[in-house]
């Protein structure tokens, strides 16, 4: 597929900095961000909320058979991270020489995720490193 630029651009606050959302009525936080609170529905009051980028590994795997755009980085580790704020998010765990295991603490880093061919955009995205 040939991507037009707006698709990744509109998500940049979330993909670079883990900016999600929070319902000010019930206190529930969301990542990725959403417009309607799952608890309060139309009565909710959703506001932007930047996550700390810190959490711990809840589950993980190593992708050894990647989609097309990820062939040059395979194999790579992905995990479900339980953020310190509560919600779970999925993301890459970069290699920093430490061993991934359930419960291991992580923090956010910025890396390349995909590149659109030879001439297209470079898509930067949060990933996690073990601390």
């Amino acid at each position: 597929m040939e991507n037009a630029p707006a698709g990744s651009w509109r998500k940049q606050d979330a993909t670079y900095n883990m900016t999600g959302s929070k319902c000010e009525k019930c206190g529930t936080m969301y990542f990725p961000p959403r417009i309607i609170c799952r608890n309060c529905g139309r009565d909710g009051k959703i506001k932007e909320h930047k996550f700390s980028g810190e959490g711990s590994v809840y589950s993980y795997t190593v992708i050894r058979v990647p989609p097309h755009d990820f062939r040059n980085v395979a194999p790579y580790t992905v995990a479900v991270i339980k953020t310190n704020e509560g919600p779970m998010v999925e993301g890459h765990i970069v290699d920093n020489g430490k061993k991934v295991e359930i419960g291991a603490k992580v923090r956010i880093v910025l890396r390349r995720m995909t590149v659109d061919g030879e001439e297209g955009l470079i898509h930067y995205h949060y990933k996690f490193e073990l601390v």
Binding site: V73, D95, V109, L110, R111, M113, I122
Partner: peptide
């Protein structure tokens, strides 16, 4: 690393 470049290094 494969997923690092001048932009990610500068950002970090």
């Amino acid at each position: 690393a494969t997923d690092e470049d001048t932009g990610t290094i500068a950002s970090e």
